[in-house]
Design a protein around this nucleic acid. Structure first.
Length: 821
DNA sequence: CCATATCGGGG
DNA sequence: GTGTACGATATGG
C-alpha cells in the first residue's frame, strides 16, 4: 500500500451515515496539498460511578442504548472499564464509546442525572482534538500515512483513505505564507461601514507574489498593480489569486476582526462564494466577543492576536498597532499616507492612488514579515500543545497551559477535570490571592551591591513542593505532610501537601523545566532559531502555571494551590534575606524573586559562598542565581503611585555598564536634553562618585539652555498619541501640537508620534507648543526646559545625595543676575 | 464606590 | 460544534 510523508496543518470532521469521518489537511513532503481521510475513530467520554455501584451491571445496562433524536441515531457502541487517575485517586472509570459526537452530548446529559453516576468526564473535549491526542498526531511535524487514493472530491493534490498515520519525526514544516490587506472607501474617516462602503484595494504578499488589485485606473509604473472593472471583480480576483498560490497559511493583521469579515460582507452583496476551503467550503466566521474567521485546510492566522497575546509580554511596546509592532520586531513601519484622504482621491481618480497602492502592499509586506518572524514560536507552541495552527495561534496563556495539560493527561492516564459551572466561576471570582513580598529600598547611594535571583521561582516551587490539587490535604500519612509556610498560623495548620509521590502537575512542570535546561545547554554550544523558540515556549508555559492554578475558568483551578505558591515564594525570599543579614550583609532591596545586598567590606567570594550555602538547603530544582555585582548603585525616593512605590534605581557594573530602571531616561516623552543630563549625572555619581562635578554639569547645561545654545533636536519632545485628538479630555501640549499638524493637513491619529518644542511666552504651556518647522533656534523657552525638564529629571538623584539642585541652580542664576546689574 | 459596558486592532 | 474568551479602562447607578 502506498505511503506518503506529509505535514498535517488543519483537521475537521463530518458525520456521514451517523458515522464521523476525520479529514486531515496538510502539505505532502513532495509539495502537493493532501487530504487524509480516517473513519476509524469513535467519540467517547468517561463515567465515574458512586462508591459501591457495580461497574459490570452499569456497563451491561447502557451498552447498546440507542435513541433517535431528530434525524440522528445516537448509539452507545461500547462500554468498558479502565483504571484512571480521577482527581488524584485511582478509580475504575467506565469509557462510553458512541457512534457520533452528538451522542456524547446526549448521553452525557442522560448519565449526569442518574443516581449511580458520580461524575461524567471529558465529555467536552472536541472530537478533532480528541482524535489528534489519542492518535498522537502533532500538527506541523512530519507524519507518514499509509493508504489508497480515495474517491472524494477535494481540491488537494492527494486524497488518501488512511489505513495508518504516524508521526515519523519532529521536523517541522516551513509553511508557505501569503499575507493580505484591504483598503476601504471611507468618506467618514474612522467610521468604517462594510455595509455601505466598498473595498477599493486589496494587496497580497508572499515569497513569489506581490500584487495589488484595484478597480479605478490611473497611471502607474508598478507592474504589481492589477486593474479590474469593479469591486465584485476585485473579490473574484482575490479568490483566484489565493486559490492559485495555494498557501499553507494566509495571514492578516487583525484580519479576524476586520479584513476577512469586511471581505465576507462585501462578497455576500455580490453573492460571490468565498470557497477558499480545500474541501470547497466557504470561509466561516464565528461570532462572539472575539470573532474568528477560518477556512478548511488553508490556515488563517491573525498575526495581531498571536503577537499581542503570546509575545506581548516580552515586547517593550504597549500598543499593538501594525506600526508599533513592526518597528519593534522588524525595525520597519507603515508608510505615512493620510487615509482620511483616500476617499477623496478615489472619487477624483487622483494620481495619489498610486501611493495608496504602495501603502497597501507595504502593509501586506509587514504582515508577511511579522508572520515569518514569529512562525518558529507558533510552530513550537503547536508541537507542545498538539493543536492545529489555527487554534494554537489564537490561544491565551491559560488555554496554552490547559491544552498542554489535557494533552499530557491522556499520556499519563489522568482524567482532565471538568470546566467550572457558572456558579463556580462566580464564587472563584470573589477570592483574591496574597502576592509577592517587596522590600522597599531606602533611598541612597550604595557600594558593592550583589544581586541574586531565584531562577523560575514559581515553577520550581510548584515542582519542588508538589503543589497540585490532587495532593492538597489528602491521602497522606502525617509524616509525609508538608505544611505551607503561611504567615497566618491557622492557614499554616490547615494547608498542606503530600510529599510522598510527585503528582500530575508538578511532574509536568518539572519536565518543562528540565527540557528547557537541556535545550539551553545545546543553544549555548550552537545557536539555533527553532531551539530558541522552543526554549522560549517552554519558559512561558512553565511561568503560566501559577496563574493558571488561580485562573477562575481553569479546569485545574485551586485557590489553595495558587495561594501556596506565593506563600512559598515569600518564605524563600525571607529566608534568603535573613540568611544574608546573619552573614553580615545589608539587604537594600528585594522584589518577588530577587535580593539586593551590600558586601559591607566583605569579599565577593563570601557572597558567593553564602549563596552556595542557601542553594545546598534548597530543593533540587530551586536555585538562587548570581545575577551580578555592582561596585556602585543609587536608589531614589520612589513616587507613590496607586500600586505602591515604583522602583527607581541605577546600577553600575565592573565593566562600566550602567543598568537603569524606572528613571525617565527610559521613557519617551522627555526631551533628549533632560534624558542626557539625567544619564550623565547618574554616570558621574556612580562612576566618579563626585557630587560636585555632577552639580557643575547640571549648572553647565542650565547655562547653555539659557543661552539658547542647546540644539533644537535636544529640546524636541516626542509623544505618541494613544487616541483620537478629539477624544482627549485634557489638552496637553502634545495634543495642541497634534492639532497644529492636523490644520496643516498632516496625517495624525492614534499611534502618530507628535514632535514639538515649548516656546517662550506667558500663555499656558500647551499654547506654547510649536512644531519643529515653525521655529528657529532662539525660540525655545529656557525656563520651561530648566524647570520642567532638566531639574525634575535630576532632582531626586541629588536629593539622595543631600543636595537641593533647584537651589544650586537658582543661586547661580541669582549671582549671574547680580553680576549683570 | 462597585457593577456594567466597551474597546482593543482595522480604514 | 463533545464550544466561545480576556483584561484593561471608561461609564453609569
Amino acid at each position: 500500500m502506498p505511503k506518503i510523508q506529509f505535514y498535517p496543518l488543519d483537521a475537521t470532521y463530518r458525520v456521514k451515515a451517523d458515522k464521523p469521518v476525520i479529514y486531515i489537511f496538510g502539505r505532502a513532503a513532495d509539495g502537493k496539498t493532501i487530504t487524509v481521510v480516517d473513519d476509524s475513530f469513535k467519540p467517547y467520554f468517561w463515567v465515574i460511578l458512586e462508591q459501591g455501584e457495580d461497574p459490570a451491571a452499569f456497563m451491561k445496562s447502557v451498552n447498546g442504548m440507542s435513541e433517535k433524536v431528530k434525524d440522528d441515531v445516537l448509539t452507545i457502541i461500547n462500554a468498558d472499564k479502565h483504571k484512571k487517575d480521577y482527581l488524584g485517586d485511582e478509580v475504575e472509570a467506565i469509557r462510553i464509546t458512541v457512534n457520533q459526537p452528538k451522542a456524547v452530548v446526549h448521553f452525557r446529559d442522560v448519565f449526569r442525572n442518574k443516581s449511580e453516576v458520580k461524575d461524567v468526564m471529558e465529555a467536552d473535549i472536541l472530537f478533532v482534538r480528541r482524535y489528534l491526542i489519542d492518535n498522537r498526531i502533532v500538527p506541523a511535524t512530519l507524519h507518514e500515512v499509509e493508504g489508497e487514493q480515495a474517491k472524494e472530491n477535494f481540491r488537494t493534490g492527494y486524497v488518501i483513505k488512511a489505513e495508518s498515520i504516524a508521526q515519523i519525526s519532529d521536523d517541522s514544516i516551513e509553511p508557505k505564507i501569503l499575507a493580505f490587506d484591504i483598503e476601504t472607501y471611507n468618506p467618514e474617516g474612522k467610521n468604517v461601514d462594510s455595509e455601505r462602503h466598498p473595498i477599493v484595494m486589496l494587496s497580497l504578499y508572499g515569497k513569489d507574489m506581490k500584487k495589488v488589485i484595484t478597480w479605478k485606473k490611473f497611471p502607474t509604473k508598478h507592474d504589481y498593480i492589477e486593474f479590474v472593472d469593479g469591486e465584485a471583480d476585485l473579490l473574484t480576483a482575490f479568490k483566484e489569486a489565493v486559490d492559485h498560490y495555494r498557501p499553507d497559511v494566509i495571514v492578516g493583521y487583525f484580519s479576524d476582526g476586520f479584513d476577512f469579515p469586511y471581505i465576507k460582507t462585501r462578497a455576500e452583496k455580490y453573492k460571490i462564494r468565498l470557497d477558499l476551503g480545500w474541501d470547497g467550503s466557504e470561509i466561516r466566521t464565528s461570532k462572539g466577543a472575539s470573532p474568528t474567521v477560518s477556512s478548511t485546510g488553508m490556515v488563517h492566522i491573525d498575526i495581531y492576536r498571536f503577537i499581542k497575546f503570546i509575545l506581548g509580554g516580552s515586547l517593550k511596546t504597549d500598543r499593538y498597532d501594525l506600526t508599533s509592532v513592526s518597528s519593534e520586531l522588524l525595525g520597519d513601519k507603515k508608510t505615512g499616507v493620510d487615509l482620511d484622504k483616500l476617499a477623496e482621491a478615489w472619487d477624483n481618480s487622483s494620481d495619489l492612488l498610486d501611493e495608496y497602492c504602495e501603502y497597501n502592499l507595504h502593509d501586506s509586506f509587514l504582515t508577511y514579515s511579522l508572520c515569518e518572524k514569529v512562525m518558529p514560536n507558533i510552530i513550537e507552541l503547536v508541537k507542545i500543545v498538539s493543536l492545529p495552527l489555527f487554534e494554537a495561534s489564537r490561544m491565551r496563556f491559560s488555554q496554552l497551559v490547559e491544552n498542554y495539560l489535557i494533552r499530557q493527561a491522556h499520556a499519563h492516564n489522568v482524567l482532565a477535570p471538568n470546566k467550572p459551572t457558572n456558579d463556580e466561576v462566580r464564587s472563584r471570582l470573589t477570592r483574591t490571592f496574597k502576592g509577592a513580598f517587596v522590600f522597599e529600598p531606602k533611598p541612597g547611594l550604595y557600594e558593592d551591591i550583589v544581586v541574586f535571583d531565584f531562577r523560575s521561582l514559581y515553577p520550581t516551587i510548584i515542582a519542588s513542593h508538589n503543589i497540585t490539587p490532587e495532593n492538597l490535604n489528602r491521602n497522606c500519612p502525617p509524616e509525609k505532610r508538608e505544611h505551607v509556610p503561611f504567615e497566618d498560623e491557622r492557614r499554616r495548620k490547615s494547608v498542606w501537601f503530600c510529599k510522598s509521590r510527585k503528582k500530575f502537575i508538578p511532574r509536568m512542570i518539572e519536565e518543562l523545566i528540565t527540557r528547557r535546561m537541556r535545550i539551553k545547554e545545546i543553544i549555548r554550544k550552537k545557536k539555533d532559531k527553532m531551539l530558541e523558540a522552543r526554549a522560549y515556549s517552554l519558559k512561558i508555559l512553565a511561568n503560566a502555571f501559577y496563574g493558571y492554578l488561580g485562573f477562575y475558568a481553569s479546569r485545574w483551578y485551586s485557590f489553595d494551590c495558587a495561594d501556596s505558591v506565593t506563600a512559598w515564594g515569600r518564605h524563600y525570599i525571607h529566608q534568603s534575606i535573613e540568611g544574608a543579614r546573619k552573614k553580615g550583609f545589608t539587604v537594600i532591596y528585594s522584589d518577588t524573586d530577587s535580593v539586593f545586598f551590600t558586601l559591607e567590606g566583605k569579599d565577593k567570594k563570601e557572597a558567593l559562598s553564602f549563596v552556595e550555602g542557601i542553594n545546598n538547603e534548597l530543593p533540587e530544582l530551586m536555585e538562587l542565581e548570581f545575577e551580578g555585582f555592582y561596585p556602585r548603585g543609587i536608589f531614589v525616593g520612589a513616587k507613590l503611585t496607586g500600586f505602591g512605590a515604583k522602583k527607581k534605581y541605577a546600577l553600575l557594573d565592573e565593566h562600566g555598564k550602567m543598568t537603569v530602571k524606572g528613571f525617565e531616561v527610559v521613557r519617551r516623552n522627555w526631551s533628549l536634553i533632560a534624558k542626557e543630563t539625567q544619564e550623565e549625572v547618574l554616570r558621574i555619581v556612580l562612576e566618579e562618585n563626585d557630587v560636585d562635578k555632577a552639580e557643575e554639569y547640571v549648572q553647565d547645561v542650565v547655562k547653555k539652555l539659557r543661552q539658547n545654545s542647546i540644539d533644537l533636536a535636544k529640546v524636541k519632545i516626542s509623544t505618541q498619541l494613544t487616541k483620537d485628538i478629539s477624544s482627549y479630555e485634557a489638552e496637553g501640549p502634545h495634543v495642541a501640537a497634534a492639532k497644529r499638524m492636523e490644520s496643516k493637513g498632516l496625517p495624525v491619529g492614534p499611534g502618530s508620534i507628535i514632535e514639538y518644542v515649548i516656546t517662550g511666552g506667558k500663555e499656558k504651556i500647551r499654547d506654547r507648543a510649536r512644531l519643529l518647522d515653525e521655529i528657529s533656534q532662539d525660540d525655545y523657552d529656557p525656563d520651561y526646559y530648566v524647570n520642567n525638564q532638566v531639574i525634575p529629571a535630576v532632582e531626586r538623584i541629588f536629593e539622595v545625595l543631600g543636595k537641593d539642585i533647584k537651589e544650586t541652580v537658582a543661586e547661580k542664576d541669582q549671582s549671574k543676575l547680580g553680576e549683570f546689574f
